[in-house]
């Protein structure tokens, strides 16, 4: 029993850290621009595939970077992709919610086609850090991999940096302001367009990090964007749409809930409890845990 709880805490913490990365970018984009970015999952997938191409010797033989170099390159690349997606497509249609919604769906579906065209649908494996820690001598029945620990640490570093940026710098505070009230932000001289572009850049970077960890704990596949996108939805609704703090809290809530189900109920029930919780929130607390940070004009 104690061992089970140890496993639960450990695995839950590590999975939740990745969930937080997945959800924060999604919630930021919604909070600032009111845009439901369904291509968010595609950006996560881009992170996995770009990292895979960079570190694997077999995909493109003349590029085989050390993971420590490939990691920042991938994060920057996905951030730029995300920024580009905003500049090239979304900014022209963002005033129309339905068109934006459709446009980002199209991007997501097209990304699957592109990946199948380029790499086929064979799962692509990749290594960030190899090895695992055997915790059985400590009474915990788990052998977590170093890459999971790395995911946990990197997630919190990213969240810390983001928090610092948003609350302590003028630049960052303009994002927070825009997410609270666009009109208020504009009245204080905030350039909304540039704030939104920055949000996409940051969301892209976080998606890139999440993609790298998803790819190196599992593998990259053409439909790997679906689950993260569904998770992002659940987490964001529970945390409160637009709230970064809410996303982090909800990511841990969902991560632990899933792990709890797996440990004590059974593997097959993994996702069901989260959906039940989602339904409860939608019915009784639709603004989510920290929904007040997001105020409509």
């Amino acid at each position: 029993m104690l061992g089970d709880i140890g496993t639960l805490v450990l695995q839950g913490a590590m999975i939740s850290a990745i969930y937080a990365l997945i959800a924060i970018g999604f919630t930021m984009i919604f909070g600032v621009g009111g845009i439901l970015n369904l291509a968010h999952g595609a950006l996560i997938m881009a992170g996995a595939y770009i990292f895979g191409i960079l570190v694997r010797e077999t995909t493109v033989s003349w590029i085989a970077l050390h993971p420590a170099i490939a990691f920042p390159v991938t994060v920057v690349a996905v951030a730029v992709l995300s920024w580009g997606l905003y500049q090239v497509l979304v900014r022209w249609v963002e005033d129309n919610v339905v068109i934006t919604f459709l446009a980002t769906v199209v991007v997501a579906v097209a990304s699957t086609e592109l990946v199948i065209y380029l790499f086929g649908d064979t799962p692509m494996g990749m290594t960030l850090i190899s090895g695992a820690l055997n915790l059985e001598p400590f009474g915990i029945n788990a052998r977590p991999r170093y890459v999971q620990f790395a995911g946990f640490v990197v997630s919190w570093i990213a969240i810390g940096l983001l928090w610092f940026y948003i609350t302590k710098t003028d630049d960052g505070r303009s994002i927070l302001a825009a997410s609270m009230s666009e009109r208020g932000a504009q009245l204080t001289g905030v350039d909304l367009h540039s704030v939104r572009a920055k949000t996409w850049l940051i969301a892209g970077a976080l998606a890139g990090i999440a993609g790298i960890f998803l790819g190196s704990t599992g593998s990259a596949t053409p439909l790997m964007w679906l689950n993260p996108l569904a998770l992002a939805f659940i987490i964001v609704v529970i945390g409160g749409i637009g709230s970064i703090k809410g996303s982090v809290v909800a990511a841990y809530f969902i991560g632990f809930l899933e792990q709890f189900t797996v440990t004590f109920v059974g593997q097959g029930f993994r996702g069901i409890l989260s959906l039940v919780v989602l339904a409860i929130f939608l019915l009784y607390l639709p603004q989510g845990l920290y929904g007040r940070e997001f105020v409509h004009d």
């Binding site: 694997r56 077999t58 064979t122 799962p123 692509m124 494996g125 990749m126 290594t127 190899s130 090895g131 695992a132 055997n134 052998r143 991999r145 170093y146 704990t217 599992g218 593998s219």
Partner: peptide, 29 residues
Amino acid sequence: GIWHEAEYEFGIEGIHVAGMLPVYHAATE
């Protein structure tokens, strides 16, 4: 991936359709 990294002391046998793909070894590094 986990099996290799954690060096779990058991084998993996049976039927695995993806594993029949001739490029599967390379795909999983």
